[in-house]
Computed example of a mutant assay.
Amino acid sequence: MPPKTGKKLHRGPGGRDRREKFEQGISTALKSELGPTHRAVKTLMSWTGASERTAKHWLAGTHGPSGRHLIQLARHSDAVLFYFLAAADRSFIVPGLHLVAMRTKLLDLVEAIDAHKRQ
């Protein structure tokens, strides 16, 4: 019988719980913004280039996104970005992000008003 090679590495305290919490957090964030419908799956696919099955796993909370997919999700979804910042203990950044978003919306509104005045 051949000898065993390698060692089993333990994830440390709460490894599985933390992972499941991440997966559920991403799922909750996505559902709050997109809903649990098939349209949400299609939206996730277009945002990230992920497969349909992968997007369904994210919404179900059974799997979490990889690093590059997480970046794409945060680029398109404020809810995912805010969850990520809270999970990283950086929630103090969120109010600043809200101000930037409000400023952008106000500038868009001013442009719409100006365009209406020119007509």
Rank of each mutant, 00 (worst) to 15 (best):
M1N: 11
P2A: 12
P3C: 00
T5V: 12
G6C: 04
K8W: 05
L9E: 11
R11Y: 06
R11F: 09
P13G: 08
G14R: 10
R16A: 11
R16T: 12
R16E: 15
R18S: 14
R19P: 00
K21D: 15
K21W: 07
K21T: 15
I26F: 05
S27H: 08
A29R: 08
L30H: 01
S32R: 02
E33S: 00
L34F: 02
L34N: 02
G35S: 05
G35N: 00
P36S: 15
T37A: 12
T37L: 07
H38Q: 15
R39K: 13
R39F: 07
R39D: 15
R39G: 03
R39P: 00
A40I: 05
K42Q: 15
M45F: 01
S46W: 03
T48V: 01
T48Y: 00
A50Y: 00
S51Y: 00
S51E: 06
R53P: 14
R53F: 01
T54P: 14
T54G: 09
K56C: 10
W58C: 08
W58D: 11
L59P: 08
T62G: 13
P65R: 04
P65E: 03
P65N: 04
R68P: 10
R68L: 06
L70T: 08
L70G: 03
I71A: 04
Q72W: 05
Q72S: 13
L73T: 03
R75T: 13
H76D: 10
H76L: 08
S77W: 06
D78Y: 05
D78M: 08
V80I: 00
L81P: 00
Y83K: 02
L85F: 06
D89A: 11
R90V: 02
R90D: 08
R90G: 09
R90L: 05
F92Q: 15
F92P: 04
I93C: 10
P95A: 10
G96S: 04
L97V: 11
V100I: 13
V100R: 13
A101T: 10
A101V: 05
M102F: 01
L106K: 06
L106Q: 13
L107M: 11
L107R: 15
L109P: 03
L109N: 12
L109Q: 10
E111Q: 08
A112P: 07
A112L: 04
A112G: 06
A115Q: 10
A115W: 04
H116F: 01
K117E: 13
K117S: 10
R118A: 13
Q119G: 09
